[in-house]
């Protein structure tokens, strides 16, 4: 094949579709960088070049520090937990117990729901007094906890919601991987006298590694770009205890109307995701062995 592309075809096949992509991906990323060197325009004076002023604000922003720590805890807490649960679910669903399809439905359903719906369901679940969480606590004679209204529990409560929503999706990927493991490998290990636990850790888990890397990368990116539940359930509160970076960008830009600082935070976000991508490539290069 490898035919030459005429100019007319080039225009239709590449330039037209890609210009849309550039207009809403590359252009805004660069524009955020440019705008981060300017301040906000107001009705009586236009915006002017302020150099690194916005970045100085960023370094001195205590709220941002808290948001970054929250984001870190959120990512480190949800990603491994969701992966471990997904592997467990996949193994259980794969074991051909009775009512397997019902179990798979129960695990996978949260993935199908919009995050807004999930947030509403959990808002009710957590509701002090009336919610199921409170009722379970009082059944055991424990006092009701205002999960979303306390700084100690709000972030943790958000993490539970995220794990509930995402683990089922990851389970599907592991299910596919498990079903592609040849049974003779496990038979051979069993013949050598390995128990089920040993087989899992020495045979199955290493073979799941490519899936784990794929899932971990997606989960990590999602941990940074999905904040719908924060918007619906806590609005980052109380006192920023459940605010994540993207939510903070949303709050600064559309709540406080500070577009210049919003652009600066966007640059920070792109840099963080860029570092994650670089680390991901480095790990993929060294560890992943696709057949």
């Amino acid at each position: 094949m490898n035919m030459r592309l005429s100019y007319g075809m080039r225009l239709i096949l590449l330039v037209l579709p890609c210009s849309l992509l550039v207009a809403f991906t590359h252009f805004p990323a660069l524009k955020a960088l440019l705008n981060s060197f300017w301040n906000n325009a107001s009705s009586f004076r236009p915006s002017r070049f302020v150099g690194l002023d916005n970045y100085e604000t960023l370094l001195e922003d205590d709220k941002l520090m808290q948001v970054l720590v929250n984001s870190l805890i959120y990512a480190i807490g949800t990603v491994p937990l969701a992966i471990a649960l997904a592997i467990g679910m996949a193994l259980l669903v794969n074991s051909k117990f009775p009512a397997t399809s019902l179990m798979r439905l129960s695990f996978f359903l949260p993935t199908m729901l919009p995050m807004v719906a999930v947030a509403n369901i959990w808002l009710f679940f957590y509701a002090p007094g009336i919610g199921l969480a409170s009722q379970i606590l009082s059944f055991f004679g424990l006092p009701s906890i205002n999960f979303l209204g306390r700084t100690e529990t709000s972030l943790f409560s958000m993490m539970v919601v995220a794990v509930w929503k995402e683990a089922g999706l990851f389970m599907i990927f592991y299910l596919a991987a498990l079903q592609s493991i040849p049974t003779n490998l496990k038979d051979a290990a069993r013949l050598e006298g390995a128990g089920s636990v040993r087989i899992f850790f020495d045979v199955v888990l290493p073979l799941l590694r490519p899936t784990t890397i794929f899932v971990a990368v997606n989960a990590l990116i999602n941990a940074f770009r999905l904040v719908d539940h924060i918007v619906v359930m806590t609005r980052g509160g109380p006192s920023n205890s459940s605010s994540l970076l993207l939510y903070y960008i949303y709050e600064v830009t559309f709540g406080f109307r500070d577009f210049a600082y919003g652009a600066t935070l966007t640059v920070l976000m792109v840099v963080i995701l860029g570092i994650l991508a670089a680390v991901q490539f480095w790990i993929l290069d060294r560890k992943a062995h696709y057949q």
Partner: peptide, 21 residues
Amino acid sequence: SFVMVQLLISPEILIVENYLT
């Protein structure tokens, strides 16, 4: 690779500038 950048820097995180556009 230029096109694939969108996999990482997706519209979800560019809300500020895309809104201005």
